[in-house]
């Protein structure tokens, strides 16, 4: 009995530690983003923004957020990220759902090799294509934004095809057959009947593709190195840091981080059930 109580205490202590581990970074991000330069310099650092004068009164400042929204690099970065991630997601879903329908519901020669060819590249390391892409993009003078969109396809597409194929495969064959009895061509069946049915899967894969593209750093860093006006948010934030070498504008960096994170948190909040379902469909078919 004693053992039981001790076990419970240890268990709940563990829960508390884990929850703090998960929450504390968010909290610290928010806390820092509301601090002025003087408050950031306070030692020891305070757990809420306090008046640096010594009165210890709580004192939030919105200065960092104002600075972030007046920072052209950051605003441009937001716009660039939105364009790159949005267009990447759209193309990946269109091209991916075509392929997934064919792979999941049609019979044709070369289907299995196609499946292997596409899926084998779900997790390849991006550095393996980076230099070649960079050389070609430079040689053809492709601007950084289309270059990023093109290159992001190569990691969003295999994943999209994979998840959507298993969803299409899960749809009963009778739906297709009855549509065809009614005179629909296979493509009409795909567009008007099956595609609406896979809407939940499209939302999930689209969201995961969007997150991946929104957060991508390696390609963006490389392709925008000679084209600073095309930098996406992750590159802008990482460079924020380097710009002023001696004194990092930490409050502003944190405010910028909060601003780029909140849209994604809202998306996760809305679609969390679908994300779990999508991850399960994509990865746990074992």
């Amino acid at each position: 009995m004693n053992n039981n109580i001790l076990g419970k205490i240890v268990f709940y202590l563990l829960v508390v530690v884990v929850v703090i581990y998960l929450i504390f970074p968010f909290y610290w991000m928010l806390n820092t983003s509301f601090k002025s330069e003087a408050q950031l310099q306070m030692t020891p650092a305070t757990f809420v923004p306090r008046d640096p004068g010594g009165t210890g009164a709580i004192d939030f400042t919105l200065k960092n957020y104002q600075a972030v929204f007046q920072n052209d690099t950051f605003l441009r970065g937001l716009l660039n990220s939105l364009i790159v991630a949005g267009v990447t997601t759209f193309i990946a879903l269109v091209v991916g759902s075509f392929a997934a329908f064919a792979l999941g519901k049609l019979r044709f020669r070369g289907k299995t090799p196609s499946l292997y060819l596409i899926l084998a590249m779900t997790m390849f390391p991006q550095v393996a294509v980076l230099t070649g892409l960079y050389a070609v993009i430079n040689a053809l003078r492709i601007p950084a934004i289309p270059a990023m969109i093109l290159s992001y396809m190569i990691f969003t597409l295999p994943f999209t095809v994979w998840v959507l194929t298993s969803f299409f495969r899960g749809l009963p064959m009778e739906i297709m057959q009855s549509a065809q009895v009614d005179g629909a061509t296979p493509f009409q069946t795909f567009r008007m009947i099956l595609l609406p049915l896979t809407m939940p899967a499209l939302v999930t894969t689209g969201l995961l593709a969007f997150i991946a593209a929104w957060n991508e750093y390696l390609f963006a860093l490389t392709f925008t190195s000679v084209e600073p006006q095309s930098r996406t948010v992750p590159v802008a934030i990482a460079l924020f840091t380097g710009q002023v070498a001696r004194q990092e504008p930490f409050g502003e960096i944190m405010a910028a981080s909060v601003v780029v994170t909140i849209p994604l948190l809202i998306l996760v909040l809305i679609f969390q059930n679908k994300i779990i379902a999508g991850l399960t469909a994509g990865a746990v078919k074992g």
């Binding site: 289907k111 196609s114 296979p186 493509f187």
Partner: peptide, 24 residues
């Protein structure tokens, strides 16, 4: 079906063929 399937997979195959396998 075979033709349609082929055509629908083609864009993905081309994209991955060139951009992944080609550059690898």
């Amino acid at each position: 079906d075979a033709l349609l399937g082929f055509l629908m997979v083609l864009p993905s195959i081309i994209a991955i063929g060139i951009f992944v396998y080609g550059f690898i």
